[in-house]
């Protein structure tokens, strides 16, 4: 949404998908890779992401973006940093996806580490990306109807 994307009129996304910055466990990596699958492959140009760190520091443009677009927060752990930081920026959290909860259905699976995903990790990532995309399509449709 910023570097190289200053001309927002040409590339204005309809939905913002914001992963957490989780650095300690595989859940954070899955949240980010699922978001990239949506922004880069499933809904390019219609869904974009924003650096969570920009919200932490109160960046004006980032705050404006989360206030003017429906946001999907994708959090790795129960601390819900993405959701909370969007809310603290007075943004609109339309959907909150919790990777930690979603992964419970893959009982016994090894997803990889904080830096690498196993095959099971990539499979779970794609499932979560599908969940995000479905929610994003719903939000996009609602926005169009409005």
């Amino acid at each position: 949404m910023r570097q190289g994307k200053a001309d927002m009129k040409d590339t204005e996304p309809q939905v913002l998908v914001v992963p957490c910055s989780g650095i300690g466990k595989v859940h954070g990596l899955i949240s980010r890779e699922a978001v990239y699958e949506v922004t880069d492959k499933r809904m390019p140009g219609r869904a974009e992401t924003v650096c969570l760190a920009l919200l932490v520091t109160g960046d004006d443009l980032a705050q404006q973006q989360v206030r003017t677009h429906p946001c999907i927060a994708v959090d790795g752990c129960p601390k819900l940093c993405a959701k909370k930081n969007i809310e603290l920026s007075e943004g609109n959290v339309a959907v909150s996806i919790r990777v930690h909860d979603t992964l419970k259905k893959y009982r016994g699976a090894q997803f990889g580490s904080a830096t690498q995903l196993s095959e099971a990790g990539w499979a779970a990532t794609s499932d979560i990306a599908a969940e995000i995309a479905e929610a994003a399509e719903r939000l996009t449709a609602a926005k169009t109807e409005a």
Binding site: Q3, P19, I23, V50, C51, A114, T115
Partner: peptide, 18 residues
């Protein structure tokens, strides 16, 4: 690490920190 999710350099900060 900033972990900036929008940019490749953010990913580098996270992976290098790990």
């Amino acid at each position: 690490a900033c972990s900036g999710e929008e940019i490749a350099a953010g990913t580098l900060t996270r992976l290098a920190t790990r």
